[in-house]
Amino acid sequence: MSTGTVTSAGPDERLARVGLLKRVLLKPELGALIGAVLVFGFFAALSDVFRSASGIANWLDPASTLGIMAVAVALLMIGGHFDLSAGVQTGTAAITSGLLTTYYGVNTWAALAISLALVLAIGFVNGYLVVRTGLPSFIITLGTFLMLQGLNLGITKLVTNTVQINNFNRILGYDVLHAVFASEFTIAGASFQIAILWWVIATILGSWLLLRTRFGNWIFATGGDANASRNVGVPVARTTISLFMITSFAAWFVGTTQIVRLTSIQAQAGFGQELIYIVAAVIGGCLLTGGFGSAVGAAVGALIFGMTSQGIVYAGWDADWFKFFLGAMLLLAVLANQYIRRFAELSRR
């Protein structure tokens, strides 16, 4: 740009003025990162345990499994959809694996494959119905959410006469499963859950998919303007269905982590979590209207959730305050997102 060519000075001037500010503001994860630093600073000032190695391990744990789901849900939201059945699908996956192995003696690997196939099929049905009917995914997945909630409870009760499946640690190959899903590693004397590692990997994968692949471009486009995308040849239906199936895969992974770690699973597992995933994604900068957001942001949203939920305990406050904090953060994030969107989309209309 250091040429002596005589062009109008206009464009470069404008680039300097608008470009830089806009570029920074348009990073979807920016707000979440600032929020995370503030939340960390706040609780670290209130409690030494919070900033100790074991404290960190403690708040990274809830952040990790939530984070894996939040990344998948963020991709789905950027693609323009919600999945209210995502939480209950973690339960469906774990219950299926648990019942098949402990009650029906099915081989562990076969059982895991079956539960994976089952939730992927649920994801496919969610996506297919959304694509075919054109109805809001909110309503479609509310339907599958309620159905799965009923099935999880009904079938568990029918088979076990209780609302819990136990003894998962007695199945063949549990050691291997434990190593993959529930082992711990030690840093600075504190033991960290391996799920934290999976969370980091999920974030890197999600981010790579979103920003570096054709599929990622299609996700943004599908959520940004499905019609325009279709007109230029983007496979909108395939993209949408894939996103629902990715969410289901994440649910299988988290559900399996849960049952391996606890060696048992409640029939109620995962109920209500779906909203927390969405909260994390929104705090991470995803727009509710789709087309904008980031995987890193969603992971940071989950981090904020983890820090706040444990930080309140370390600060010696009543845990009831947690929901208040979470709600306030959500509101702040939505307002910030709204502003950014207007800035990006409407400034030149």
């Binding site: 943004f220 486009a221 940004g224 303007d225 019609n227 325009a228 995308s229 230029v232 087309g291 990006a344």
Partner: peptide, 10 residues
């Protein structure tokens, strides 16, 4: 297209 087939946020 009249409506351009472009995604404003991208």
């Amino acid at each position: 297209y009249q409506d351009l087939a472009m995604v404003p946020l991208m």
